[in-house]
Each structure stands twice: as structure tokens, then as C-alpha cells.
């Protein structure tokens, strides 16, 4: 039977069924057999070279003759990254934040490489890109990309804030001021922000509040001009930016219970010292200062008053 199929001279296996069906005994081509053998050899070599066989008894495993480990590979990859960053890091290590900022190349490097640093250490409170985070009481931590700074927006101020941390302080006034007085002064403060200090001063509707402001201890911290003092972190009350809830009710609460005053209803505003925490190196703190400065609110060291503060001219 099988001879019938012997059309191409290929022998059959000799097994015939259904009268006339048989199998050719075609040997695979040599290149194919070589490929198959080579693949098998490759598997064996691979198996020996890399970690492969776990030992159930000891909990260990055959480490492979190549000594490869994922950790080693990761370290090698990391050293590649470090090599690229190294030359920048070596330079900025001994520079002041202001000098880093002034160096175009380094400040560009910080702008690009600081993202992870900021994301890991700052964004939890200050939000992605310093956009601020909010909780049910309003802003949880200050927005970092505007030009209003409680403790100053110059590069050295920012650096100092990150390194040393900050703790806002405002006493509770619920015992020293009457409720009506608190309401009056809150309205006055709100008017200063909404209309500007000049208009608010001339506005008879908030004159009672102004009187309270000037005669109680408000000016001690916020100043006669209500612009605050960055040295002590008292806020500028005449601008449009509110650290805490800027509604009349919100302002009343801040005045009545203070900030970090110990009263359970007080506003809480604490930034930890990143130097004391020990998590960040000096270089990293410097990089963060430059990174934050570059969000757009950083203020140059030039003597001229920042444009934003001059926007509502203070004329007494």
C-alpha cells in the first residue's frame, strides 16, 4: 500500500490504515534539527548560569554559576543614573541655595530632578506642584506657587523654612475681645482683603472693626499697616490670599481661637524641621528650596519691593 504514496521517493513509516493512508517519514531539515539542539543547549546553560533550583529543605536556592542577582543589576543601573547626576550633585553640595539658583545649569537640573524629592517629602501637605491641599477647615498647608509668603519668599527664607520648620502662632482672643468686637474686626479684615486697605479705612461700615484693630493687640503682630511681619510669620491681611478660611465666619474663628494657641478649636499650622527629622541631607534641602522657589512665587533678592505687594499701594 505504502508504495502507492511513494510519489516523491520519500519512504513511509509502513503503518497503513483505512486501506491507503500512510505517513511520510520526512526527517526535519538539518538546520531545524541544529536549531532545536542549540535551543536545548541554551536552556541548559541558562539554567546553570542564573539562579534556578530552590531547595525546599533549607529554604535556599541554587545561586547559579554567573552570580547574577536582581539587586546587583539594580545597583548597576542606579550607579549609571548616579554617574549622570554626580557631576551636578558634586557641584551643588558646597554651594549656597542662592548660588545654585543663580547658576542656570544647576537650577535647571534641580527643576528637573527635584520632582521626586518634593513628591516624597512635601506634596503630602503642600500638594502636587505646591498647589496646596485642603481639608474640611480649608487650606491645610500654604500654597507654594503664589507670591504670598508668611516667612518670606527669598531663597534663603525658603531654605530656612524647610531646614528649621515653622510654627504659626496667634493667641486666642475669645477672652480679651467681646463677641461683637471679634465680628467687627473680622468684617474689617475681610474688607481690607476684598477692597484694599485704603477703601476699607474709609468705609464707615467697617469703622468699628478698624477701631478694634487699631486699639487691641492686632497691630502688635500684623503691624499698623496690617501687612504682617515676615520675621515672625504674621500674615499680610491686606492681600487676597488667605492662609485659613477667608470668609467672615472663618476669620472670626481664627481671631477667637488663634493659631496653635493650645485651644482645642485653634487653627493648626505646623511645619516640621526637615533638618531635625534627619531624613534629608543638606544638599537635598537646598535643592528643595530652589525647587520651591521656581514654582513661580520666589522673590528675588533685589531691594525693590515685590510687585505683588506694591499692587495695593499702602498710603496711610
Amino acid at each position: 500500500m505504502s508504495e502507492k504514496h511513494d510519489v516523491s521517493g520519500v519512504p513511509t513509516t509502513g503503518h497503513v490504515w483505512d486501506d491507503d493512508l500512510a505517513d511520510f517519514t520526512n526527517q526535519p531539515p538539518r538546520w531545524w534539527m541544529l536549531g532545536l539542539t542549540a535551543s536545548a543547549l541554551f536552556c541548559v546553560v541558562y539554567f546553570l548560569y542564573y539562579p534556578s533550583i530552590p531547595f525546599a529543605a533549607t529554604g535556599g536556592f541554587f545561586k547559579g554559576i554567573g552570580g547574577w542577582t536582581a539587586i546587583k543589576e539594580m545597583e548597576a543601573d542606579k550607579s549609571e543614573v548616579d554617574a549622570v547626576r554626580g557631576k551636578f550633585e558634586a557641584r551643588l553640595k558646597d554651594m549656597t541655595p542662592a548660588a545654585i539658583l543663580a547658576d542656570n545649569e544647576l537650577s535647571e537640573y534641580v527643576k528637573r530632578s527635584g520632582k521626586v524629592l518634593f513628591g516624597d517629602n512635601c506634596a503630602a501637605c503642600h500638594g502636587q506642584n505646591g498647589a496646596g491641599t485642603r481639608d474640611k477647615e480649608g487650606l491645610f498647608a500654604p500654597i507654594l506657587n503664589d507670591d504670598d509668603w508668611l516667612y518670606g519668599g527669598k531663597i534663603d527664607n525658603i531654605h530656612e523654612t524647610i531646614a528649621g520648620g515653622r510654627q504659626g502662632m496667634m493667641g486666642a482672643h475669645k477672652d480679651t475681645l467681646k463677641e461683637a468686637q471679634i465680628a467687627d474686626v473680622a468684617k474689617y479684615v475681610k474688607a481690607m482683603s476684598d477692597e484694599g486697605k485704603d477703601k476699607a479705612d474709609a468705609d464707615p461700615a467697617v469703622a468699628a472693626g478698624k477701631k478694634v484693630f487699631m486699639e487691641s493687640d492686632c497691630t502688635a503682630c500684623h503691624g499698623q499697616d496690617a501687612k504682617g511681619m515676615q520675621a515672625m510669620g504674621s500674615t499680610n491681611l491686606t492681600d487676597k490670599i488667605w492662609r485659613f478660611d477667608g470668609s467672615v465666619e472663618g476669620i472670626k474663628r481664627t481671631i477667637a481661637y488663634g493659631v496653635n494657641s493650645g485651644d482645642p478649636q485653634a487653627r493648626v499650622a505646623v511645619m516640621p524641621s526637615f533638618k531635625k527629622a534627619g531624613k534629608l541631607s543638606d544638599a537635598e534641602i537646598k535643592k528643595l528650596a530652589v525647587y520651591v522657589y521656581k514654582f513661580g512665587g520666589g522673590q528675588a533678592d533685589a531691594p525693590a519691593a515685590p510687585a505683588a505687594e506694591a499692587a495695593t499701594p499702602a498710603a496711610k
Binding site: 506642584n129 498647589a131 503664589d146 492681600d239 487676597k240 490670599i241 512665587g297 505683588a308 499692587a311
Partner: peptide, 15 residues
């Protein structure tokens, strides 16, 4: 993120 920033004089800044 953020789309815009309100500055202290009430102006709006885009980056």
C-alpha cells in the same frame, strides 16, 4: 496642576 495660581494682589498667574 494647578491650572492657575491666584497671586496676593488678586491677579492670576499661569505657568
Amino acid at each position: 496642576q494647578p491650572l492657575f495660581v491666584r497671586m496676593s494682589d488678586g491677579s492670576i498667574q499661569n505657568k
